[in-house]
Design a binder for these strands. Structure first.
Ligand SMILES: [Mn+2]
Ligand SMILES: [Mn+2]
Length: 488
DNA sequence: GCCCTTG
DNA sequence: CAAGGGCAACGCTTT
DNA sequence: AAAGCG
């Protein structure tokens, strides 16, 4: 007969530890169990059941729970000799399981059904008759193999029919009522061939707008939005739990892939996981399914990440500032850019301010564009010191507009045209024509509900010319900006 | 939302 | 099995 | 140096 305790013996030096050497016994009629509190490197409880001449053993990190709602992880460890059931003491330092062992409970156990069969099948039902533990229990083997290839089981207290019945009522009351009362999840919907789970989930309690509303929005604006996403790394602000849940930013592909979203060649950004690109309506809907609310884009496209194709000015007003002042500020910026010889496009940020975007030919370095944008912002702040500031921070823009030119750094990004904002009302960053700016009353004027109607009503795309506008930064411009040392 | 790790 | 963590990055400003 | 912010 192979030695059932071989592993147990191999792990221990019995000249040093006071644990029993023991040996496998003949199977008994009455079977013992023991629970030992083991204060080893990590405190845990060792749960042992006599079976077939040895103690089958599990380490239970949190110990057994009398609550039937709890399932306690039980990592199976090597069989121990039956005499171990009486062991208490200190396992010396540097020995296997070094630390204090005390008997926390012991008694006899009785399998319900065939014990050996249940053990082999990974479903062992039994009664315990101890001082602390009694009643019926189950040990179930899970599918997962734990670390070190140890089998993982769950120890679960079963509800007892008769004895614990006066307390049975309390137990009923303890049951996970909350779980049962949660409203039934809505049936998944399908859009663009993408399954939208929890379509009726309200993601913005203020407006009552749902996850399906969001997905529908991105589907509807796809023809307008996709040109600004095409072949451009996109960063996602995801908040699967809606506006009240916690959001996270995603820049790279992660293990949980988003179906239909493309990944760029790793050479674009060799240090990290591949960057993401959205090139289809399907991918937009898929992003919404995965809890994406905002889309942020880079100022460069994947095929030439060293040469930005636009310059962005993010106008962040002091929240107390009248909207008209923000509009005036954007116009001043536009006029100055115009004097330099640059056309620009304006959109709401969907939050408090406006974004002014200057499309560029891809011939300038990041350094040129970064410095040029800073020079433009600085010029305005120096010319209109009461209107503009370029110093970051709340206290530095009191009654002013902060011109955030830092959007033009290589690693920066800006919320994309037509992106939803993760704010009350689910507003949208809305491209505008300069002519209609006077009719706009605030940055969050359009949201996912109203924007499709705006698009339908428009005679033409306010940014129609954007795609054909490829401007260069000339020497003359740099001279006007006092950047004599810079190369275009 | 989903994967992976942890108890 | 259930619960919890991770899912970005940088420059700027203030402490 | 580190924390907070956009
Ligand atoms: Mn142990
Ligand atoms: Mn802004």
């Amino acid at each position: 007969m192979p030695n059932k305790l071989a592993t147990y013996h191999a792990k221990r030096n019995f000249r040093i530890t006071s644990e029993p050497r023991g040996q496998a016994q003949r199977a008994q009629d009455e079977l013992r169990f023991v629970v030992q509190r083991h204060d080893a490197s990590k405190l845990h409880y060792d749960f042992r059941l006599e079976l077939d001449g040895t103690l089958k053993s599990w380490a239970i990190p949190k110990g057994p729970s009398m609550n039937p709602a709890d399932k306690r992880l039980a990592v199976q460890v090597e069989d121990h000799p039956i005499s171990y059931a009486d062991f208490e003491g200190i396992i010396p330092a540097h020995q296997y399981g070094a630390g204090k062992v005390e008997i926390w409970d012991s008694g006899i156990w009785e399998a319900r059904g065939d014990a050996a069969q249940g053990y082999r099948d990974g479903k062992l039902k039994f009664h315990l008759y101890g001082d602390k533990l009694h009643g019926s229990w189950t040990l179930v083997r899970t599918r997962m193999a734990g670390g070190g290839n140890k089998q993982q089981w769950l120890l679960i207290k079963e509800r007892d029919e008769a004895a614990r019945s006066d307390s049975g009522i309390d137990e009923e009351a303890d049951k996970p009522v909350g779980k049962l009362l949660k409203h039934a999840p809505s049936k998944p919907a399908t859009l663009q061939g993408i399954t939208i789970t929890h379509p009726e989930r309200v993601i913005d309690p203020a407006s009552g707008l749902t996850k399906l509303d969001l997905a529908h929005y991105y589907d509807a604006v796809a023809p307008y939005l996709l040109p600004y996403l095409k072949n451009r790394p996109v960063y996602l602000l995801r908040s699967p739990g809606g506006l009240t849940g916690k959001a996270f930013f995603q820049r790279h592909a992660i293990r949980a892939a988003i179906p239909e979203i493309a990944i760029l060649d790793p050479s674009v950004d060799p240090e990290h996981q591949p960057l993401l690109v959205i090139n289809s309506a399907k991918a937009l809907v898929s992003a919404a399914q995965m809890g994406t609310i905002e889309l942020h884009t880079c100022n460069a496209r994947a095929d030439c990440m060293d040469k930005p194709d636009c310059m962005v000015f993010d106008l962040d007003p002091d929240p107390k500032l009248k909207w008209q002042r923000v509009v005036d500020g954007a116009r001043l910026l536009r006029e100055f850019l115009n004097e330099l010889g640059l056309d620009s496009f304006v959109k709401t940020s969907g939050s408090k301010g406006l974004h002014v975007v200057v499309p560029l030919a891809r011939r300038h370095t990041w350094e040129t564009v970064t410095r040029c944008s800073e020079a433009v912002a600085r010029h305005l702040a120096e010319t209109f010191p009461r209107k503009f500031g370029i110093k970051m921070g709340e206290q530095n823009r009191v009654c002013k507009i902060y011109i955030d030119h830092l959007r033009n750094q290589k690693m920066a990004s800006t919320v994309a045209p037509y992106s939803v904002r993760a704010r009350q009302g689910l507003s949208v960053s809305t491209p505008l024509s300069w002519d209609e700016l006077d009719d706009v009353t605030n940055s969050a004027m359009w949201n996912i509900q109203s924007l499709p109607a705006r698009l339908k009503a428009l005679k033409k795309d306010p940014w129609e010319a954007y795609g054909n506008t490829r401007q260069t930064i000339s020497k003359a411009m740099l001279r006007k900006l006092d950047m004599k040392d810079a190369a275009p």
